[in-house]
Design a protein around this nucleic acid. Structure first.
Lengths: 186, 186
DNA sequence: ACTACTTATTCAACGGATTGCGCAGCAACT
DNA sequence: AGTTGCTGCGCAATCCGTTGAATAAGTAGT
C-alpha cells in the first residue's frame, strides 16, 4: 500500500528514472521495502496520472530514451500527510520460518544446510551494511542521520538472525548427541 | 505463495477447522506468517480441490456446523517436497522504516511518538513470547524444540528492534542538544 | 432488554504483486 | 560469431491479499 510513498521518498532528493529507482530498490531502500521494476513503472504511471510526480522525456543515443521523474508539490504534500499518520505494523511472511515450525518433518541435515545458506546471505548483507555505515562515520553522519539509522536497523537485524542461527545449531547438536526418547517416525 | 504450506504444517499435528486455524495464525504461526480467516478458508478450498486435505462435516447444535480438515498423503508429500527445496528469501515491506528513511521531512517529535507506539507493541509481544518460552522450559522443550526455536527467533527479533529504538532516541536527542548546521526547511 | 462477543463459514469487489514476455541497441567477453 | 549483460521502457494474465459484508445462534455482561 505504500510503494508510492517509498518512491516519493526517493524522488525527494533527486530526479530519477524508473530504472534508477529500480536500482535503488535493489540496494538502499531494498533494505526496508522491495519492489520489481514492473511495479515501479506501474506506480510511476499512477503517480503521474494523479500529478504527484511529473517527468521530462530525455532522448539519448546509444542508450534507450528515458523519463526523468521529479516530485511535485502535490506529491510532497501527500508524502507529508502519509508520514504523519501511524504506519500499519509490518505483516510477517517468512517461508524459512514456516519450515522451522514444521521442522519435525525434516532431517536435521537439510535444516542445517539451509541455515548455512541463509547465514551466508545474512553475513554478506551485514558486511555491506557495515561498510556503508562506517563510510558515513568518517564523513558526516549528521546530515545522513536517517540513512545511518536505517543501516543500523539492518545491521542489528542481521546480527540477531545470526545469533539465532547459532542457537539452532547448538540445539540440534545437543539433540543428536543424546539420542532422545522421541519417536523418529509417527 | 506458501500460506498453503503453513496450513499443511498446522494440519500435520491435528485435525482442525478453518476457524481453529485462523486462531492459530493469530497466535503461534502468526509469529512468522500471518493471514486472515478469509484467506485461510479460500486456501482450504483450493487445497481440498487438489486433494491435499479432506474434511468431514460436523453438525453442531448451539453452534454453527463446521468442517474438520485433515491432511492427506498427497498433502504430506507436497509439504515434504516443499520443505526440501530452498525457501525464497522473505520480501521486506516495512512502512515504518520507509518513514525513517524519509525522516528528514518530519519533526523529531512525531517520529518519537510513533517509535514509542511501535515499541509498546514490540514489548508486549516480547512478553508473551517469553512467557510461552519459559513455559516450555519447565515441561519439556525437547519435544517442542521447533516451537521453542521459533519463539526464540521472535524474542531476539523484538529485542533487536527495541535496542535499535534506543539508538534512534539517543541520536535524536543528541541532534537536538547541539543545534546543527542543517537547514530546517529547504 | 440491549449490546457485544464468540463460534463458524462464505461471497464479492478491488487493488497490489508476481511471472512472463517483448522490444531495442550497445558493450564486453569467449 | 555468439552469448551474455546492461540500460530503458512497457503490457497482459494471473494470483495473492485486503476490506467489507452477510448469516445465524448462543453466551455473557450492563
Amino acid at each position: 500500500m505504500s510503494l508510492r510513498h517509498a518512491i516519493l521518498v526517493l524522488l525527494q532528493d533527486q530526479e530519477a528514472s524508473g530504472y534508477d529507482l529500480a536500482r535503488e530498490f535493489a540496494n538502499s531502500i531494498g533494505l526496508v521495502w522491495n519492489a520489481t521494476h514492473q511495479q515501479i513503472y506501474l506506480e510511476l504511471g499512477k503517480l503521474n496520472d494523479q500529478s504527484m510526480v511529473k517527468y521530462r522525456h530525455i532522448p539519448q543515443d546509444g542508450k534507450p530514451d528515458k523519463k526523468l521523474y521529479r516530485i511535485t508539490d502535490e506529491g510532497r504534500d501527500e508524502l507529508i500527510r502519509w508520514l504523519r499518520k501511524p504506519a500499519a505494523p509490518p505483516r510477517i511472511r517468512d517461508a524459512f520460518m514456516v519450515k522451522i515450525a514444521g521442522g519435525d518433518l525434516t532431517d536435521s541435515a537439510s535444516i542445517l544446510r539451509e541455515l548455512d545458506d541463509q547465514g551466508d546471505l545474512r553475513r554478506e548483507r551485514l558486511n555491506t551494511f557495515e561498510a556503508l555505515a562506517s563510510k558515513l562515520d568518517d564523513t558526516s553522519r549528521d546530515r545522513d542521520l536517517f540513512t545511518y539509522l536505517t543501516l543500523r536497523r539492518g545491521i542489528l537485524d542481521q546480527q540477531a538472525w545470526l545469533h539465532w542461527a547459532d542457537e539452532v545449531r547448538s540445539a540440534l547438536k545437543k539433540r543428536e548427541e543424546q539420542p532422545v526418547a522421541v519417536p523418529t517416525s509417527v
